[in-house]
Write a protein that binds this DNA or RNA. Sequence first.
DNA 1: ATTTGTTATCGTAAGGCATACGATAACAGA
DNA 2: TCTGTTATCGTATGCCTTACGATAACAAAT
Lengths: 237, 237
Amino acid sequence: MESLVNPYVSVDCVLLGFDGEQLNALVVRQSGNNGEDVAGIYKLPGSLINLDENLDEAAQRVLKQFTGLSQVNMLQFKAFGGPDRLKNPEDSVWLVRFYNLNHHIDRIVTIGYTTLLRIDRKMRKLEGGYEAQWMPISELPRLAFDHSAIVDEALKAVRAKATLDVTLLFDLLPNKFTAAQLRNVMEVVLGITLDVKNFHKKLAQMPYVVPLEEKEDGVNHRAARYYKFKKLKNKHI
Amino acid sequence: MESLVNPYVSVDCVLLGFDGEQLNALVVRQSGNNGEDVAGIYKLPGSLINLDENLDEAAQRVLKQFTGLSQVNMLQFKAFGGPDRLKNPEDSVWLVRFYNLNHHIDRIVTIGYTTLLRIDRKMRKLEGGYEAQWMPISELPRLAFDHSAIVDEALKAVRAKATLDVTLLFDLLPNKFTAAQLRNVMEVVLGITLDVKNFHKKLAQMPYVVPLEEKEDGVNHRAARYYKFKKLKNKHI
DNA sequence: ATTTGTTATCGTAAGGCATACGATAACAGA
DNA sequence: TCTGTTATCGTATGCCTTACGATAACAAAT
């Protein structure tokens, strides 16, 4: 009866940051807990869970550790638990050293979380010491463990979610934005192309987008109108 | 550093069975491993994971144990891991006894799986010894642990999935079925109501449903045409 | 001053799709 | 023969999407 697995459980966060042009993922260098470089491989920000927290809270803790953000609702999208997740021996060694464990780890089941974030000035310089950085998702290198697959799944989940609820893209733009900016966000995040000429009709039908009187300034073409988001009630997760 | 949690990981399966009229969930009595009745409370079929299997395989094993079915793709929909999942002391006690453990269990993280099944003659009499039974989801009692919440989440996930891909309902009907039967399945599973008169137009536009020449027999109203499903290629999970 | 390039914004028209609903078909039983 | 019930088809209306022409506004080149 004792082939039952008593693995560790972690959360890994696929933080997708929009920088005004494209989608980036936050990756960290797989360094030791005292800072020395172990393998030079990038991985997702994550952590084993603590005794007093639930899975959502563990994900929030990781988010705060690497970005300083709190109060962000992340989407739990999938659990990864194959027995071969640590098949690369270096990964096992790294885990034991990083967490100061006195025994080998056979298995880690990880819960994937993801969210969309806006990369603004504050976000560009991340909390120090972790060698975290934003990398365009189109240029991501191979990540440690099965983290590349985890990123793929996160993207699928986020796109499905945002397709059903466009208001998730609210936070990716500044307070005032033009129609072209909103269109670009939708194209990049959802992975689609939208008809430029018809986009204003869609815009006019979005009850949560209100036009402002203010217009662009100093552009060498017709100035575009600014819009802002109007928060609606009945906002569910 | 040693507040890291090293919990057990289980899978719990929300098996949703359609009996021709309504949706049922498979629940089992929380009995000891030698059959004695412990609390008389119902729970979901589930199991801790084994050393040599991944999460999907563990879920398949549970499905087979309780229904005899194999080769069914289940949907992994959410992980549940709050520190208070075993807050009921009886639950902890039951776990230690059932799995013959020689220590207390602080915490179990469980991965929820679900799928839609058709309850046919074979399925009605389930594999013996587990006191498993189908109960209409509208009449489910309070389940052990947080299993009631798990059922709710499973329903949400299945409905979202089946709304996007109606072919998931293929397996809930016999080979030959009438338009009314299909409509009823869609109404019950998706939790919607469909216009009777317009349903045939929708039917005619479903490329994966083909009309047969055969008709109903022995009904005291106009006989309905039978249809069958046509499996399409490019069927992804 | 005029032209050109570029992007924003509006209007119109065609086609697809959902919904409402009238009309007919088929059968069993009163 | 009539009535009740369900299946099935056809038509009409309105909404939404898409295609695309037309106009607006501005900067830079000519």
